[in-house]
C-alpha cells in the first residue's frame, strides 16, 4: 500500500529521512516542471527544484499541515522562481532545449507517428513555449499551475496571494494572448491536425 503524503510527512517529522526521500521522489518531477516552465532554463530549474526540497526539509518542523504538502512545495518553488527572476532581472527564456524534444516526442508517440507529424509537434511545442515567454510572470504562472498541475482557481489564488477574480482574469488574458500568438504563427489547430 502506497503511503500518502500526509503519512510520509508525519514520519519525516519524526526523523525518518527515507520517508522524506519518498516525498522527494514523488514530487521532484512536478516541481522541476513547474520551475522549468516558469523560468525556462533547464539548469536553473534543476537548481530551483533542488533548493525547494532542501528548504522544505529544513522547514519541515514548522509545517503544520494547514495546506496540502504539495501546495506547500509549490509555494516554496514559486517563491524561489520569483527570486530567480528578480535576481536575474530578465525575461524567462523558454527556448526548447537543444536536441531533446524530437527524440522524446518520438518515443511518446510510438512508431505510428510520421516524421512530418513529429516535426509539426516539435514546431508547435516551440511556438507554445515562445508564446508563454510573451506573458507577464503572473499570467504565465497562473496558466502553468492550471494547465500542467491541475490546481483549482482557489488554490492558485492562495499561492499567488490574490483574489479569485484576479486569477480568472489572468487566465483569460493569458490564453487570449497565446491564442493570438498561435494564430499569428499560422499554427492553427486544423493545420496541425493535417
Amino acid at each position: 500500500m502506497v503511503a500518502t503524503d500526509e503519512e510520509l510527512v508525519a514520519r519525516s517529522m519524526d526523523g525518518d529521512v527515507d520517508s522524506f526521500n519518498q516525498l522527494v521522489l514523488r514530487w521532484e518531477r512536478p516541481i522541476y516542471a513547474l520551475a522549468y516552465r516558469v523560468i525556462g532554463r533547464d539548469e536553473d530549474a534543476r537548481d530551483v527544484a533542488q533548493e525547494t526540497f532542501l528548504r522544505a526539509f529544513r522547514a519541515l518542523p514548522g509545517f503544520k499541515g494547514q495546506a496540502k504538502f504539495s501546495s506547500w512545495l509549490y509555494r516554496i518553488a514559486l517563491n524561489l522562481c520569483r527570486d530567480w527572476i528578480r535576481r536575474k532581472k530578465r525575461t524567462p527564456v523558454v527556448d526548447m532545449p537543444e536536441g531533446v524534444d524530437v527524440a522524446e516526442l518520438a518515443a511518446e508517440q510510438g512508431p505510428v507517428e510520421s516524421i512530418e507529424d513529429l516535426v509539426a509537434r516539435h514546431e508547435m511545442s516551440r511556438i507554445v513555449a515562445a508564446g508563454m515567454k510573451l506573458l507577464p510572470e503572473e499570467q504565465r504562472t497562473a496558466i502553468v499551475l492550471k494547465e500542467y498541475h491541475g490546481l483549482t482557481f482557489q488554490e492558485i489564488a492562495d499561492l499567488q496571494g490574490c483574489p479569485l477574480s484576479t486569477v480568472k482574469t489572468r487566465l483569460y488574458q493569458g490564453l487570449t494572448v497565446l491564442r493570438r500568438h498561435l494564430e499569428s504563427q499560422g499554427m492553427t489547430r486544423e493545420e496541425f491536425k493535417k
Binding site: 522524506f20 521532484e28 522541476y32 533547464d42 531533446v100 524534444d101 508547435m124 497565446l178 491564442r179
Partner: peptide, 28 residues
C-alpha cells in the same frame, strides 16, 4: 478557440532529465 489553445498548451513538455534528488544525513 480557448479550448484549442488549451490543447496546444499541452504540447509543451519540459525535457526529460534525470533528477534523483536525495536528502542525505551527515551520518549517512
Amino acid at each position: 478557440a480557448l479550448g484549442d489553445v488549451r490543447s496546444d498548451i499541452g504540447l509543451w513538455v519540459p525535457p526529460d532529465v534525470e533528477l534523483d534528488f536525495t536528502i542525505v544525513k551527515k551520518s549517512q
